[in-house]
């Protein structure tokens, strides 16, 4: 009768897993934890571009909808921006399967802690927890299953939005203004760099995010632009002291249409190409 936890799962051993859900799984159902000991190299669908930027009242997180597998499109409407809880979001880039699993564990971890302790973890605490989870994924990352999320949320103690980026070892770096990651991350960052300023309003920040994703999709084959034919648009969430709100699809669609009409005039089509190119049909 020394280990009561084994006899009856509703009774708590004093030295049990406390308020951490992943420690609980480790103790009771380790098979449910993500596989860490991966051998060999595997090809899986990859999520591409996600970004986050701060605005006056909080932070905006956005991501395109494409998953690729080599040069193939693996999925056209994958979700990459997830609410971690009411006050924060994770945006995933890299191996989609392990990333989505990591997000699910992270979400459960935060909710479990909140319910057991009666209060939410601080934003700092959440960011550190995610960092540990990425570090635990390092052996899998060495075999090609790299997961590098962006984490952003509203810090209720400091009363402003914060953005954290990670490296594959779980290294955690806070960004002051904006960050983008994934295959189109560099292009999105370039776009954000030109448009970002610290006093953006919510609407301006969302427009900034949309333009950055548009620019990334323009330059990077892995990043999906707005799919007008199927009605698939990137996902955007805004987090302020009021909590996380997903930006409605209509608003995102309208903003893309705005970007297209604004830029349409600047784009030169093939007709106006300066080089004299003759098409077969025009001959003679």
């Amino acid at each position: 009768m020394t280990d009561r936890g084994k006899i009856d799962s509703l009774r708590l051993p004093v030295n049990g897993p406390g308020s951490s859900f992943s420690e609980l799984l480790e103790a009771r159902k380790p098979d449910l934890l993500p596989e860490r000991d991966v051998k060999g190299h595997v090809e899986v669908p990859e999520g591409t571009t996600v970004l986050a930027l701060r605005y006056a009242e909080g932070v905006v997180v956005a991501g395109d909808r494409r998953a690729t597998e080599g040069f193939q499109i693996a999925h056209r409407s994958i979700e990459k921006v997830f609410a971690a809880d009411d006050m924060s979001a994770v945006a995933i880039a890299g191996a989609a399967g392990p990333a989505v699993e990591m997000v699910r564990l992270f979400q459960t971890e935060l909710e479990h802690y909140e319910k057991v302790e009666g209060e939410r973890l601080t934003l700092e605490g959440k960011a550190n927890k995610l960092s540990q989870m990425i570090r635990a994924n390092l052996p899998a990352a060495m075999q090609g299953l790299v997961v590098v999320p962006l984490f952003a949320g509203f810090d209720e103690n400091r009363e402003y939005g914060r953005i954290f980026k990670y490296d594959v070892t779980g290294g955690r770096y806070e960004e002051d203004d904006y960050h983008a990651t994934g295959s189109g991350g560099k292009d999105a960052r370039g776009s954000l760099k030109k448009r970002f300023h610290p006093d953006l309003t919510r609407d301006e920040a969302i427009k900034c995010a949309i333009e950055a994703l548009f620019d990334a999709a323009d330059e990077d084959v892995g990043t999906g632009g707005p799919d007008l034919m199927r009605g698939i648009f990137p996902t955007v969430a805004a987090i302020s002291s009021e909590g996380l709100v997903e930006v409605p699809e209509d608003e995102i669609r309208a903003l893309f249409e705005e970007v297209i009409s604004e830029r349409g005039g600047e784009v030169r089509g093939p007709e106006s190409h300066p080089v004299d190119v003759r098409r077969p049909g025009e001959e003679g």
Partner: peptide, 15 residues
Amino acid sequence: QLRIGGIRLVDMKGY
């Protein structure tokens, strides 16, 4: 103790 045990049970099941 029962409350926390219950949360553990349902969170594991839901996961």
